[in-house]
Write a protein that binds this DNA or RNA. Structure first.
Length: 306
DNA sequence: GGCCAGGCTAGCA
DNA sequence: TGCTAGCATGGC
């Protein structure tokens, strides 16, 4: 069955896909740049469901076709469409961001470079949190390798029309792991503890992550901060990469600081406080400015000759 | 080979 | 309250 979503324009699905497809080598997300499609499985009503998102139309008159099994109930269809809209930030009125910063010396060029690019989020809070904790203090390349290994170990792997789709491990899957199993994948002892303990909190019903959706950013931060292994940066990333909140400033983030250094042409590494000062007029678009600064670092490096 | 990675905790003053 | 050593390993 196919339903059509009309995102608010501008919406550059192609650039968004390029970013998604460069993360890791696992079989969770299947991106086809030629056909402009994104496919993956998610848990819906406790079973894995395959869906596909395909871009038709243009950047200024975008449409997304969402394809999913006929067997979904009406309620599950609604849930899936809400999730897809959130994942691709289709309802964010990005033109307001653009008009607010159209004359900004350092931000306007970013808008020009990444016109129509929106945040692409993870469909699931648990999945996102595991990825973020894994990414603490290690380079992104290594973090992606660790996540790939974790998916091989604990995820489901489902064949569908000659393609293999991996499904990210559920909290229940991971709650039954031992720390030593993650150590063997080259997780540090502490990260193994952080991640498995977090899975156990959810699987046991002690922590209800879905209750976070109704909370403000600061309420989400204060409710997760007491959990061991979860600091402010981690929650700020969750707010961005899982919840799609648009006004989050992870000022301590080394990538953001590098991005600010590059865009502002600074000769020194700005501190967290420096970033907060420069960002005083960024509201309510802290997340998008941060995201575009991250994007500006991810641009393919020029290959040197010789 | 040394420093840096899209940090966090625990221990100390 | 604020500071810092230690963690743990790949990338460059």
């Amino acid at each position: 069955m196919i339903k059509v979503i009309k995102p608010v324009s501008p919406f550059d699905f192609s650039k968004m896909l390029r970013r998604v497809s460069s993360a890791g080598k696992n079989n969770i997300v299947h991106v086809d740049m030629d056909n402009q499609t994104y496919k993956r499985m998610v848990h819906l009503a406790n079973r894995p469901v395959l869906f596909q998102v395909k871009a038709i139309g243009s950047i200024d008159e975008p449409e997304l076709e969402v394809e999913f099994p006929e067997t979904l109930s009406q309620r599950e269809q609604d849930e899936l469409l809400v999730m897809v809209k959130r994942m691709f930030s289709t309802d964010i009125d990005i033109k307001q961001f653009y008009s607010q910063f159209s004359d900004h010396r350092y931000i306007a060029p970013l808008i020009s470079d990444f016109y129509g690019v929106r945040l692409v989020t993870d469909p699931d809070l648990f999945e996102s949190m595991v990825k973020i904790i894994t990414g603490q203090q290690v380079n992104l390349t290594f973090a992606a390798v660790l996540i790939d290994r974790l998916i091989d170990l604990a995820g489901e792997h489902i064949e569908h029309e000659s393609e293999t789709f991996s499904v990210f491990p559920t909290a229940e899957n991971m709650a039954s792991l031992e720390y030593g199993q993650l150590r063997e994948l080259q997780f540090s002892q502490r990260k193994a503890e952080y991640i498995i303990d977090f899975a156990r909190l959810i699987a046991s019903g002690t922590l209800d992550v879905n209750s976070l959706w109704a909370k403000s950013d600061e309420e989400v931060i204060s409710s997760l901060l007491p959990i061991r292994g979860i600091g402010r940066w981690t929650i700020e990333c969750l707010l961005i990469f899982a919840m799609g909140r648009t006004n989050v400033l992870p000022a301590a983030d080394i990538g953001l600081r590098n991005g600010v250094r590059k865009a502002w042409g600074l000769e020194y590494q700005p501190s967290e406080e420096d970033v907060r000062r420069l960002a005083e007029d960024w509201a309510p678009w802290n997340t998008y400015i941060t995201y575009y600064l991250w994007e500006s670092l991810a641009v393919e490096p020029v290959i040197k000759e010789g």
